[in-house]
Structure formats: structure tokens, C-alpha cells
Design a protein around this nucleic acid. Sequence first.
DNA 1: TAATCCTTTACGGAAAACTGTAAGGGATTG
DNA 2: CAATCCCTTACAGTTTTCCGTAAAGGATTA
Lengths: 221, 221
Amino acid sequence: MFKKVLIAEDFQDTNRGIVDALRNKLNIREIQEELYCDTAYNRLKLALEKEASFDLLITDLFFKESHIDRKLSSGTELIKAAKTLQPSLKVIVNSMEDNPVKIKVLFHDYKIDGYVCKGRHSLVELVNAIDTVSVDKTYVSPQINLSVSNNVFELDEYDLLILKDLADGFSKKEIVEKFKRENISPNSESTIDKRVSKLFDEFGAKNTTHLIAKLTREGKI
Amino acid sequence: MFKKVLIAEDFQDTNRGIVDALRNKLNIREIQEELYCDTAYNRLKLALEKEASFDLLITDLFFKESHIDRKLSSGTELIKAAKTLQPSLKVIVNSMEDNPVKIKVLFHDYKIDGYVCKGRHSLVELVNAIDTVSVDKTYVSPQINLSVSNNVFELDEYDLLILKDLADGFSKKEIVEKFKRENISPNSESTIDKRVSKLFDEFGAKNTTHLIAKLTREGKI
DNA sequence: TAATCCTTTACGGAAAACTGTAAGGGATTG
DNA sequence: CAATCCCTTACAGTTTTCCGTAAAGGATTA
């Protein structure tokens, strides 16, 4: 079981609940909390330098903006920095996010060990997650169905360039001009037309407005 | 000071923090928690019938969906029902929402007494809010600027009908047909054209796609 | 080398979006 | 009552979107 745990979470009241659960149900001795990504990172770094490193990081994904200038502003940035600093560190994410696609990215690209979706059973799940992760397995909240989203179409960088411009209200002709100006190729109106039409098929959209609305709602652009 | 408080909040770990704070800092004797809007409402009703009614309701706005069939599915519905049941009940909302326009609506239309925005200082603010509300004043988290949003363009119901259909990929002609079918008026293509053009001006959008992208990002549709 | 496949590009036509003008009707005001 | 304002609607003209066909060029394969 873990001995030293760091919690990064900007909701004061949520912190309390987690700390209570870890202390009482898992008998974890050393629990520290941070409200900001930057300070959490500094604490991890300091502990590592003093050879008293943390075993587990429990972090949220979203942190409210603050007046203080920050280098790290989101959970994903914190995770990336923390894993670079200390690859052995186990990471459990505890967040509102329930989009399987995004959670999948956390496991694939950010190599997290557990994901707990905030909700009615958060605390019970978090305890289970810590148990599971402590024996080198991965944990995901049962209500999240990661397999559903296997055949989701991925957006490559070029598609994203087009989509973002469309969402910003540019016409196809304007996008053509912009691409030519910035030496982005291909840059014919015809190609851009075809790309967007392909995305209509992939995402089941009837027209540009529909497509952009869908992708915006899903947080993909 | 309040004697009997009900907390409606579907995040288990958040509940814990609030209960602790109320008990320790405010010496409130009777604190009950509910994870669902419906059960919260039933508890309010039961207490009223037994002449042991609650003084204060602290509720979130968003509740995760559950497998159980519910009559009330959001905090606003709970507030509406609760105020109808027991007009004297004080209500403090504790939620993620930080859009001043939406918070303003809670005070105007739902007659809430306090609003605490979940964040780093939630607990401290909540204690302040309870203090303030207990002497018949209203409380709003200091970071929320209700006055800023005075000149924000409001979307009326009719505009929203159009916008939602556009976001769902309907063409203007299809919207016209739909409106006529559902006896929604006005329903000429010309009027719908004009409404949308007005929204372009108000929100600084270049075309429909741009408008829908903006409003979707802002969570207005 | 020839055949094949894929991507880019050009082009054309129907449909839709966008804009401006103008007419009609209901409500308000002097 | 007439003048005015506001909203709805019709219509027309330009631009843009959307979709199909087809040609050109590059890379891969037999």
C-alpha cells in the first residue's frame, strides 16, 4: 500500500472528503494537499530531491483560473510534468470528465494508472482505485465504458486546422487564402471541400454548422 | 442561526467537507444529506408535515444522471419545488457555475438567498454565506461579478429554438416546416433569416457556423 | 514499364445562406 | 383619426455551400 500521497485538487471541500477516506479506510500515514498545479509539482520535486518521494498522486483535471501566474494550469500538464520528473509515480485522476474518449487519452498518452469519475460513489471508488493501483493494475470507474469509443474517428492536425477556422467563421475561400499565405498544403478549395464532406460522413453531420456544433460540444475543437 | 439544514449534492466527497464545516464552525446541530433531488424534496416535505421543517437548503445545480427515474433532475427544479412547498425556506446554491448571467437568473427567478461558486475557497465562502443568509441578506461569491453582465444579450426562447435546430443541422427551410408543423410562430424563412442576422450582430459572428460555435462554447445552447 | 491506387485539383450545377428592399398588419401615440 | 413604430412576410440578387464528375500527378506494386 502507498505510504505517501499527494492530492492536487482546487476544491477545498472535496479535498477534505478524500483526506478523511484515505486516513480512515486505508490507513495512509502521510497525506498532503495542494490547491494549485504548480505548487503540487514543486512539492513532488522537493520530496524527490530530499529522497522522500511520493508514491501516489491523486489529481483533478480542471483547475479554476487564479490571479497568480501559473506554469501548469491543468491536471494533464501536471501529470505530464510529474511523470517526466518521477516516472515511477502512480497517478489517479479524480475528475468530472465522463467522456470515454478523453479518459482513454489519459491512459494512452499520459500513462495514468487510475481514473475515478466524480459522482455519488466517488469516495468508495477512489478507495477501490487506490487498492487496485497499489498492486500495479489500472482502475477505471465502472460507469465509464472505454470500449464503446474504439471506432471513434480521429481528427488529424490538418482537419483540425480547417475545423477551427470554420468554427471561427471563415468561409472556405478565406481558408484557402489563409492556407496559401501560410504555406499550408493542400490548399485548394476542392480539397478542403472534400475533407469536410468526409468529416460529415464520419461524424454523421448534415452540414458544416452541425459538424462544428457536434465537435464543439464534444470538446474536440 | 439555522438549526436544521439539508444538503443536496451528488458528490459524496463534497458532502463530507460541507458537513464537517457546518458542524465544527457553525455548530449546526441537525444536518442531513441527500444525493438526489427527489429524495431531497421528499425529505423537505416530510419534515414540513411533521412540523419539524428545515431552515436552510444547500444544493448543487447539476446532478449526474442516474438509473432511477426521477421527477426532479436538476438543482433549479428542486429549488422551484422546494420554494413552492415552503416559501420561507432559505436556499444557498453551491455549484461550479460561474456565469454571472445564469447566477443572476437564480436570484431573480428562483429567489435564492446565496450563491457560492465551488472553488479553492468554497468552504470559507459557504460559512460566510450561511452567516449572511441567516440575517436575511443575500450572499454571492466575491469572484462573481453580477453587474458586468448587464449588457449581455439575452437569448429569448424563440431564438433558442432556432439556434438549437441550426446546431442540430437543420436548414432554414426545414426549420420553417418544423415551426409550421408545431404551430410555432413567426415561421417565415424571412423572419428566421432576420433573427439570425440580428444574432450575428449581437454576438459578433460572421455566419451561422461561427455563431453556433461561439454559443456552444459559452454553454448557451 | 505498365497497371493501379490515392490525393490533389478543376469545374459545374443545384441548393442553401446571406443581405437589402419593400409591402402589409397590428399596436401605440399624439 | 392619422401618424408612427415594430414585427412579419415576400421577393430578388449575390455569395457560399455542398456534391458529383473528371483530369492530373505521385507513389506503390506486379
